[in-house]
């Protein structure tokens, strides 16, 4: 953690009263999750219902966020888009966290050549842009959500793995871990029961931030046309569709999903930082 980042964080807290900002971010996330879960009940229109006569209609009582170039209700598409928008990152974060934790703890605990091998492997994945990997996988397995999610899951492993390794190396030198070794426990048991749970909060903080980043990456893939395929709605794909509407003066079809992405990513970032802060405070 750099001094500048710390100071900035402290300033932010002073500006917003810290906990208020956290609470707000949590509420935003809760709303997004609820909306995604209840999509069929709260969406005012069929997200895929075409109505070419109402194409590119601005905001109105019937369509609060207007309609896109095919006359589909933007609000309803956004509500359904939250489902794919959350599901993808959820899988990415779950897979990358588990894999990263396993790789990181193994590298830290074994040390020596195991550590060298795993660390260099993670560097290799790091060097490979996640988006590029996703595009390659899409080319091999065809478009759809599966290939981008698999690619992102792998691309995010080193973010978690490197952090876990560094934290675990330090944690393993702590006397409480060493005393378990002296007591005669196996490395497996110590890592699983004592080391992993104690570094978990820090890892979860990183994963919460990864959630936001992977949401953005997956949206970018959809925007590029590699992710969610039409007619399914997705925030990234909606921006892509909305781009042409922009030229015709309709701002909402592109702006609304864009804003949703920004809000979700920022909210996950704040929650992640909040968890990290709390961990730091507990350590101190």
């Amino acid at each position: 953690m750099t001094a500048v980042a710390l100071r900035r964080r402290r300033m932010l807290r002073r500006l917003h009263g810290g906990d208020a900002l956290q609470t707000a971010a949590l509420i935003v996330l809760a709303v997004i999750v609820l909306v995604a879960a209840l999509a069929p009940w709260i969406a005012p229109h069929d997200p895929n219902g075409l109505d070419l006569s109402a194409a590119l209609g601005g905001a109105s009582g019937d369509h609060p966020l207007g309609t896109d170039e095919s006359g589909r209700d933007v609000l309803s598409r956004m509500i359904y888009g939250a489902r794919t928008g959350l599901l993808g990152p959820l899988v990415v974060v779950a897979v990358s966290t588990v894999l990263g934790a396993v790789v990181g703890v193994t590298a830290a605990w074994c040390g020596g050549w195991v550590d060298a091998l795993l660390s260099r492997a993670m560097d290799l994945v790091f060097a490979l842009p996640g988006l590029l990997l996703a595009i390659v996988l899409v080319a091999v397995f065809g478009p759809g959500l599966t290939a981008p999610i698999a690619a992102m899951s792998i691309a995010y492993v080193p973010y978690v793995g490197r952090l876990v390794r560094n934290v675990a190396v330090q944690e393993a030198t702590r006397p409480y871990i060493q005393s378990y070794r002296v007591q005669g426990w196996s490395g497996w048991t110590i890592c699983l029961r004592h080391l992993a749970p104690n570094i978990a909060p820090l890892v979860l903080a990183q994963s919460a931030m990864n959630f936001g980043y992977s949401l953005m990456d997956l949206a970018a893939l959809s925007f590029l046309g590699f992710g969610v395929q039409p007619p399914d709605s997705d925030w990234g794909a909606m921006i892509n569709n909305g781009a042409s509407a922009l030229l015709q003066g309709a701002v909402l079809p592109a702006l609304a999903p864009g804003a949703a992405i920004v809000v979700a990513v920022v909210a996950f970032g704040i929650v992640g930082e909040g968890v990290a802060d709390r961990v730091a405070k507990r350590e101190a």
């Binding site: 702590r174 005393s179 007591q183 005669g184 749970p197 104690n198």
Partner: peptide, 20 residues
């Protein structure tokens, strides 16, 4: 081996698992 020798460490604040 563990029943041969046990150890008490210097720093009481780091030698116990905070979760146990």
């Amino acid at each position: 081996r563990a029943r041969d020798v046990q150890m008490v460490f210097q720093d009481p604040y780091l030698s116990l698992d905070p979760r146990v």
